[in-house]
Amino acid sequence: MDKTLVLIKPDGVKQKIIGKIISMYEDNNLEILDCKMIIPSNKILEEHYVEHKGKVFYNELMKFMSSGSVVALIVGGENAIDKVRSINGATDPKVANEGTIRKLFGTNVTKNTVHGSANEEDAKRELNIWF
C-alpha cells in the first residue's frame, strides 16, 4: 500500500468542507490512515516548504499556511500518490480539471484548498515532518 500526505489548507478548513474533501478520497478507494488538525508552527512549515525558500511567493505562502488550522492526513491505497494528485487537480484552480478539489473549492495558486505529495520521496519526507 502506498502512502501520501494530504494537507487540507486553512481555506478548506474555513469553508467547512473537510468531510467533502475526505469523501472524495474515500470514494476513489483511498483510505484515511491517520489524521490530525493543527495550526502549524513556523518550524513545520519551513521544513515542509524548504524548496520554496527565497522564492517570490514564499512569505505569502508561509503567512497563509499559519493563518489557521490545517488538517494533515495520511492517505493510503494502491497508487495513492497519483490518485491524490489527480483528485486534487492542478495547482492553479483556474486550469484544474472540472470536478477536482482545487477547481471546486480553490481560489488561487496559494489558496487552493489542498496539498498532496508530488512523489514517493516527497511523501516520505513530508509524512515525517507532519506525523
Rank of each mutant, 00 (worst) to 15 (best):
D11I: 02
D11F: 08
D11A: 08
G12E: 02
G12S: 05
G12W: 06
V13W: 13
V13F: 15
V13R: 01
V13M: 06
V13P: 02
Q15N: 14
Q15S: 14
I18A: 02
G19K: 04
G19W: 01
G19N: 07
G19I: 12
K20I: 15
I21A: 02
M24V: 01
M24L: 11
D27R: 11
D27N: 15
N29T: 15
N29P: 11
L30R: 00
L30M: 09
L30S: 00
I32L: 10
C35Q: 12
C35F: 11
K36V: 00
K36M: 03
M37N: 04
I39L: 11
P40F: 03
S41Q: 12
S41T: 04
I44Y: 11
I44Q: 12
L45W: 03
L45D: 03
L45R: 08
E47I: 02
Y49L: 14
Y49W: 07
Y49E: 01
Y49R: 01
V50I: 14
H52Q: 11
K53Q: 10
K55N: 10
K55Y: 09
F57Y: 11
F57C: 07
Y58M: 14
N59Q: 09
N59Y: 09
N59A: 15
E60L: 03
E60G: 02
L61M: 09
L61S: 03
M62P: 12
M62S: 04
M65A: 08
S66E: 15
S67L: 01
G68A: 05
G68T: 01
V71N: 07
A72L: 01
L73Q: 09
L73D: 00
I74Y: 07
G76P: 00
G77N: 00
G77E: 05
N79P: 06
N79S: 07
A80Q: 00
I81L: 02
K83N: 03
K83R: 07
K83F: 05
V84F: 06
V84R: 07
R85P: 12
R85K: 04
S86K: 15
G89H: 06
G89K: 02
G89V: 04
G89S: 03
G89Y: 02
T91F: 00
K94F: 10
K94Q: 11
V95L: 14
N97F: 12
E98H: 03
G99Q: 04
T100P: 09
T100D: 01
I101E: 02
I101T: 06
R102H: 00
R102M: 01
K103V: 11
F105P: 03
F105S: 11
F105T: 06
G106S: 08
T107L: 15
T107F: 15
N108A: 08
T110V: 14
T110D: 13
